[in-house]
Design a protein around this nucleic acid. Structure first.
Lengths: 190, 190
DNA sequence: AGCCTACTAGGATGGGCGTCTTATTCAAAG
DNA sequence: CTTTGAATAAGACGCCCATCCTAGTAGGCT
């Protein structure tokens, strides 16, 4: 039977990446936070730190993708709101120290670790696909749905960065309001 | 007379922050890139690495703010386009390795260096102010101008992150297209 | 000329990091 | 009971980093 220490390490890595970034998250921190054993690091993650980060990115990416997919399937505005809400809660709960782990890895990933960047691209793409599907189901054309999904992800991720710097949710709230407007404009009348 | 090595260090730091982030940019890299003398580091920057990064953030922030302010004063769409163009050029010239130095610092800044976060917040705010002023001059209400300026900065910064991960300018292009639509919608008729 | 401040030199230092190694536990399969 | 291999233990190793240090140089001011 597989022990759960491996999964705890991945989860802890995701949590710590949010606050301290890729370079700022050491194995020692992950071990301390997950209460996992030192000796198992290279047993579970022979690829070292990059592999752990890659799995943390996948873990966080899937978590948010499922959040989007489990929203009301035909209400893009409600989906947007729950998408934003999860980030705002994370910001407030951490006093604006926790951002998005995927952004952290995407901006810090060493050039000699292309798999890390690919994992980030995949996570972002899965969110965009899920958001675009909701928009299409609500009657928005496919091309427009894709673009609206992209700006939604981009603006929210950027809004999180702004919110952390300003120590306020206002940028994220403003982003949400404008995104809502744009989505409503794109929906078919009625 | 002040040597120019100090300014070269700041400029090099800004360049290197774009590619390697805060933790990934060491003094050795800055010295090598700027061809500045080792011995002057703590003469010019007694606050150490954090001070150098802070000044690099200010330098980059002012650079972009002036770019915005020197755009056609009454054409928000043209301003948006030149704002995006500068980032897209940086992405393509670096083969998608260079992002925004301020985002790098904002996401990686250690919690015990609040001045770093403040410098980032100030830079973002200066861009938002300049963008909002252009929108107001074009007839958009003040409140809406402020929100549009915020989502513009947020979506472009997020679009840069997405573009780096995907190694394509498409996310940034899509963001620009949707922002342009939103701005046109907000402009008074005529 | 003499001085004084700004600047440069370049290595020492101490700490933190990712990584690797060897030895040990322990539960199940043969 | 024996064997096997996954999981854990604990630390050593070498690297790179920011920081600091004592000297030394250069150039404008009086």
């Amino acid at each position: 039977m597989a022990s759960d220490s491996r999964e705890r390490m991945v989860r802890s890595a995701a949590v710590l990446l949010r606050e301290h970034g890729y370079a700022g998250t050491g194995f020692r921190d992950v071990i301390a936070h997950s209460e996992a054993p030192w000796g198992s690091i290279y047993h579970h993650f022979p690829g070292g730190k990059a592999q752990l980060a890659e799995e943390a990115v996948r873990y966080a990416g899937d978590f948010v993708a499922q959040l989007i997919e489990h929203s009301p399937p035909d209400d893009p505005v409600a989906t947007l709101r729950s998408f934003i809400a999860v980030w705002r809660q994370g910001l407030e709960a951490s006093e604006f120290r926790a951002g998005c782990p995927i952004v952290a890895v995407a901006t810090e990933a060493p050039a000699d670790q292309p798999a890390l960047g690919d994992a980030c691209a995949h996570a972002f793409a899965s969110w965009e696909r899920a958001l675009a599907a909701t928009l299409r189901r609500a009657g928005v054309t496919p091309a427009r749905s894709r673009r609206l999904a992209t700006i939604t992800v981009a603006a929210i991720e950027g809004g999180i960065v702004l919110a952390r710097a300003r120590r306020s949710t206002q940028p994220l709230d403003d982003v949400g309001r404008e995104l809502e407007l744009a989505i409503r404009e794109a929906l078919p009348p009625g």
